[in-house]
Nucleic acid binder design. Structure first.
Lengths: 136, 136
DNA sequence: GCCTTTGTTAGGTCATCAGCTAAAGAATCA
DNA sequence: TGATTCTTTAGCTGATGACCTAACAAAGGC
């Protein structure tokens, strides 16, 4: 399954925030960018969308930073996609042509499955410890 | 689910070919383009890929045209995607960053579901009669 | 109050590519 | 031979994804 870098970045950064969820520490853009290997300047935009979408909160100034707005178990992959790349969830298939309707119906079914599956995947599933890290 | 126009066009045209499968008639590009509302010049490329992929056969010259190489029940949606837009089936998620592996694993699962589902959908499902057509 | 640190916002760039066009070439048959 | 149809390849173009730049606003420390 091909997906946009934007979604991938959003998942990684949210997973990172999930790890520090519960502590009082706020994460800084620069830290997140380094930890998850995401261009900081691009990350700024993504964090903005996530905040506008209600998944994270932020504070400015000294002691500022980002934190999850909900528990990692409350945030679904569907939520993330809807906020940073809603287009991916739309059914873009047109009913044109003699076979348009039948083709559209088939893809609608696939889209439903996809939506259902992403709703059942939680941020906590992506923030799980990945086992020991091997530094080279 | 968002998908490329190319896949959509391929599905519609193949569904059209499926309807005339069994008859000795070969379909012409221009006919297919009109019946399925696909730009003829673009369709040329798609039919080429489908032929190279082994889904259809063609004949040049007078009495030339296109036909399915297999029965509509033998061709899966997975086959179609693999031939005209293989990239959609690849797992493009990188394992970079601290959460890369966990995120990658989640998307691999989604990709597996998608592949499985498309393998179970056959061209015959998309060539089903769509009921009465209403001409305006 | 001022300065530093942080996030906020708007805008721009740059390469890539999906979608489409066009046209010359090759096969088939009358 | 010549009309017809597919075959192949080359090139165009507008949109977009992925980033970057830079001015701006808030919060806190001194």
């Amino acid at each position: 399954m091909k997906l946009s870098l934007k979604i991938e970045y959003a998942c990684r950064v949210l997973a990172q925030l999930a790890r520090s969820h519960g502590s009082q520490q706020l994460a800084h853009i620069e830290e997140l960018a380094v930890a998850e290997d995401v261009p900081a300047n691009y990350l700024v935009q993504i964090l903005n969308e996530l905040r506008n979408g209600g998944l994270i909160t932020s504070r400015r100034g000294k002691q500022g930073g980002y934190a999850l707005a909900q528990a990692p178990g409350e945030i679904s992959l569907y939520d993330i996609i809807r906020i940073v790349d809603a287009e991916m969830l739309e059914n873009s298939v047109s009913p044109n042509g003699q076979s348009g309707q039948a083709v559209q119906a088939v893809w609608a079914e696939i889209g439903d499955t996809f939506a259902e599956q992403t709703k059942n995947i939680r941020l906590s599933d992506m923030a799980a410890e990945t086992g020991p890290m091997y530094y080279i």
